[in-house]
Design a protein around this nucleic acid. Structure first.
Lengths: 342, 342
DNA sequence: TATTCTTGTGAATTCGTATTCTCGCATGAT
DNA sequence: ATCATGCGAGAATACGAATTCACAAGAATA
């Protein structure tokens, strides 16, 4: 049998609501009684029932996270791993836990939406969206559910969102290569539906403006294998081969490195490289891979704070869209050609 | 205002319990009435309240996962990422969600235990333990809480547990190197408190028996940097330098590769390598890194099935400890020396 | 026709806690 | 002396759905 507040109340000779006041800490309770109740609670190892508590108080103490499964699973997506790790980190010690779900398709997304939010299973939602926004978001807005988007709201000003400043990141990467003396900088991008690709590409374009007369852009699927093939078959055989590449992420960059190696080319002697994420693999090639570090901890922290504010009814002023700045970590792959050839 | 079963009942001219029967699907309801109720529910977009439901029915629909934070966060631990990804994958479509928490120390571990289990927030727990078991496990057993251990139960036969067969994995890796003609095989291990290290080391020892007269074992911290240093400072300067290494994981192996490269040595010409996990980075070095693939999907699936069985009161026969076999993925780093030198 | 059995339904209760309402008493102001 | 005020604590109720129980009406049996 489970020990309830009523049991504690009986033993301590007080009423159940008094026990409730002692537990929750609000409402006035005389110190003597409070102590007695606490003592009884300790003796009997009482633990409040989270279900009853949340039924009555309307707070679930859960924050939902829904991720769409990319092809091939999430296992080796370091962005996802950092994300979830940072969320858990943020929630340590706070009165919320993380409820994480994966979906396979848009259909089940909507199902989950009902299952998690409309059923009041969670108090709010962190939405991670890497492509265009869909119906869900509008339903979330219409129903006034607390949520924060991690990603690009695509001009929807009403949404609270946090994102890496991918335009800035793209500009920084490109600018860096220009500063290092590269003169024909290309961009190896991911699928063009993804907002990361679009935003970083825009940054690349901005940086090139007035510095390089034309852009060289190739698209490839994610992953080092796809990038390796794209580099081999399209970039290295192009009529004008670039002398440096901005690559969409570290894994793709490693693919490019492999393709270059296959071709007998050196990095950065024959091809400068900068990518994004600054993941652990950047240190795995000779001289290191230059990469724009994304500061996911700050991203997540900001998102979580916004969400908790929204859940608890605080609507802070300020812009609804927060962009987290990035910083370049320069390594060997973007050294000036002269230095590299020395 | 929220739509409740009572509201639906009033509109459909039935009683609230009848609505409940329609929703949960058990109990007999006349087909005509059932249809009418379903219609009204659809019209008013009714969604059951998970809190009330779980208060009454005693099922939270949540499975807890508690991970201890290793130093430096989890962000770049691919094992953890695969794990959580596989759990989410398993739970898709099942009436459970994942509630994931991270803890920093043993103190908060116990707090979480109360917070999650004794408060009935979750129905069961997946425990991931990479070192020795602690007090929590005994409390879980004493309170008869459904849980499954992912890791080594250290001889505690009463615990349901699932683990990679690390002894086998260690043996496979070592055996493979022996078969490839290496004759002085060393082992670059992680911290000796970790059970992965202990188990794989045992497999290594088993494989050597009768094939190689002595063992060469070095310990290092996790991560490629630590492994790189350990390789440079201890292995390459040892009185008897091995001709091949079994390395505890892919990242450490990459560190070893770097150290060898710094030293001017070739893989596998001067040093054969096999590691564990078969993560994406294995393809990033020239020729590829041979690695023992761990089959985390099966591991997680087995663990989840066991847990759900326990939660739902089924206690299957059979051994309580399940070991998931591994398979070697041979790549360039373990090619026979003659082949490599050709 | 009287008597069991079905089968489906609604009234009432339960789950464990939070919250609102009320009431008695003591205090201080008028 | 009287009345507004405030404080602490118990009684009652709300939260939303599941479950128990009793009891109808109708079918099946004698």
């Amino acid at each position: 049998m489970r020990i309830t507040q009523a049991d504690i109340a009986k033993i301590a000779n007080v009423s159940q609501p008094t026990v409730s006041r002692v537990v929750s800490g609000d409402g006035r309770v005389e110190e003597g009684i409070r102590q007695r109740v606490l003592e009884v609670m300790r003796e009997h190892n009482y633990q409040p029932d989270a279900r009853a508590r949340s039924l009555r108080s309307k707070r679930a103490g859960l924050i939902g996270l829904v991720v769409k499964r990319p092809k091939g699973g999430l296992s080796d997506d370091p962005f996802f791993a950092s994300l979830i790790s940072a969320i858990m980190d943020f929630l340590v010690g706070k009165p919320y836990h993380l409820c994480a779900d994966m979906t396979l398709d848009a259909q089940s997304q909507v199902g989950l939406y009902d299952e998690l939010l409309r059923s009041r299973r969670v108090d709010g939602l962190i939405l991670v969206e890497s492509e265009a926004l869909d119906e869900r978001v509008h339903r979330l807005q219409a129903d006034h559910f607390p949520f924060v988007l991690i990603g690009n709201p695509m001009g929807n000003e009403a949404i609270w969102s946090v994102d890496n400043d991918n335009v800035l990141a793209g500009r920084i990467a490109t600018q860096h290569l220009l500063d290092q003396g590269f003169r024909r900088i290309g961009f190896l991008a991911g699928p063009s539906e993804t907002t990361v690709t679009r935003d970083r590409l825009e940054g690349y374009m901005q940086a090139l403006r007035g510095r390089q007369d034309r852009a060289f852009v190739w698209h490839s699927d994610f992953g080092s294998q796809a990038a390796r093939e794209a580099t081999r078959e399209h970039i290295l055989t192009a009529p004008e081969v670039p002398d440096a590449l901005v690559v969409l992420d570290d894994f793709m960059a490693m693919g490019a490195v492999q393709a270059l190696r296959d071709f007998g080319a050196n990095v950065p002697g024959d091809m400068g490289l900068v990518s994004f994420n600054d993941s652990a693999i950047c240190r795995l090639i000779e001289g290191g891979l230059s990469s724009v570090s994304l500061n996911i901890e700050t991203l997540v922290q900001t998102a979580c704070e916004r969400l908790v504010d929204a859940i608890e009814g605080r609507d802070p002023d300020g812009p609804r869209r927060t962009l987290i700045p990035s910083a370049l970590i320069a390594r060997g792959s973007s050294q000036p050609r002269e230095v590299a050839r020395r």
